[in-house]
Design a protein around this nucleic acid. Structure first.
Length: 287
DNA sequence: CTTCTTGTTACTGA
DNA sequence: ATCAGTAACAAGAA
């Protein structure tokens, strides 16, 4: 599932590949994926180009050079954005790179063709992804509904203390709520709480000052490290070159239920449904 | 065949 | 206002 680190990896990759390239053609194969007018999307993108790519939480925002519009793409659970230059020729026998995906495939819903013969593929096995063209005002409204960006300068301990104050929910639900902090999903929420040694079921109001400090520190640490290793590939996530993320091997609790805790070596990783999500934690070293 | 999974939104009821 | 719980969405895995 693409969360902040995965989306940030894709953004950084694509910035190097597609900025300012002329979009020659857009092949919209599944118009249901587009939540604004599909016809307009094709018309607005044709002969246009991307002048900037931004990220807000898990949302990718492509600023268009012309027409003062933005293309927004949310990958949800199984969306992929893969860039390929020219046709891939799978040479028989010498496949030392098993990351390469043969595209387009049956899950390819949009293909962007650039004038240098390169292509960007939007694939989504479960079709939950959301693609839209929005104007400046609508983009601002979307941005306003997201909470603070946890890796930006403004996310100081003081600011975090103010955001978390008086919340009545459990800390897992708090971390997942995009209107407080943008970009944390199920994998990183569990990893952050493990790093901070806090049980996901803890009510926010019960957290001591030291514990809040630990969560604040863990958010930055876990997200930064995950970006460094280009995200977590569990099922479908790939970067803009179609390659898997390498953070899987650093996961401490996610999908490790019933196994021994890697930190205290006494506890067992448990799995419970908290905040409506599969939630993993160590029953010994998280308090 | 059924059940579960998952991010997000929408809805309901407390 | 605030929150918990649940359905819906789609497709595949078990």
């Amino acid at each position: 599932m693409p969360e902040l680190p995965e989306v940030e990896t894709i953004r950084n990759d694509l910035r190097e590949k597609i900025l300012n390239k002329k979009i020659e053609k857009v092949d919209l194969r599944l118009k249901e994926i587009v939540k604004s007018s599909p016809k307009d999307l094709v018309l607005i993108l044709k002969e246009n180009s991307f002048k900037d790519i931004r990220r807000r939480g898990k949302l990718l925002v492509f600023a268009l050079a012309k027409k003062n519009k933005y293309l927004t793409i949310h990958l949800r659970m199984t969306g992929q954005l893969v860039y390929q230059k020219g046709k891939k020729t799978i040479a028989g026998g010498h496949s030392d790179n098993n990351d390469i995906i043969d595209l387009p495939n049956k899950h390819t819903h949009i293909i962007f063709y650039f004038s240098d013969k390169s292509q960007l593929f939007f694939n989504d096995l479960r079709r939950f992804g959301v693609v839209k063209i929005v104007g400046k005002k609508e983009l601002e409204d979307i941005f306003d509904n997201f909470g603070i960006e946890p890796l930006e300068k403004g996310f100081s301990l003081k600011v975090f203390q103010n955001i978390i104050r008086n919340k009545k929910r459990n800390v897992k639900a708090f971390l997942l709520d995009q209107k407080y902090i943008a970009g944390i999903g199920n994998i990183y929420a569990d990893e952050i709480l493990f790093e901070a040694k806090i049980l996901p079921s803890r009510k926010v109001v019960s957290l001591k000052a030291e514990e809040i400090k630990a969560i604040h520190k863990a958010i930055k640490k876990v997200l930064k490290k995950a970006i460094k290793y280009r995200g977590t590939t569990f099922n479908d996530y790939v970067d803009a070159s179609g390659k898997q993320g390498k953070f899987l091997r650093f996961l401490k609790v996610y999908e490790r239920e019933k196994r021994k805790c890697l930190r205290c070596e006494k506890g067992t990783i448990q799995k419970l449904k908290i905040a409506g999500r599969g939630t993993r934690y160590c029953d010994q070293c998280q308090k």
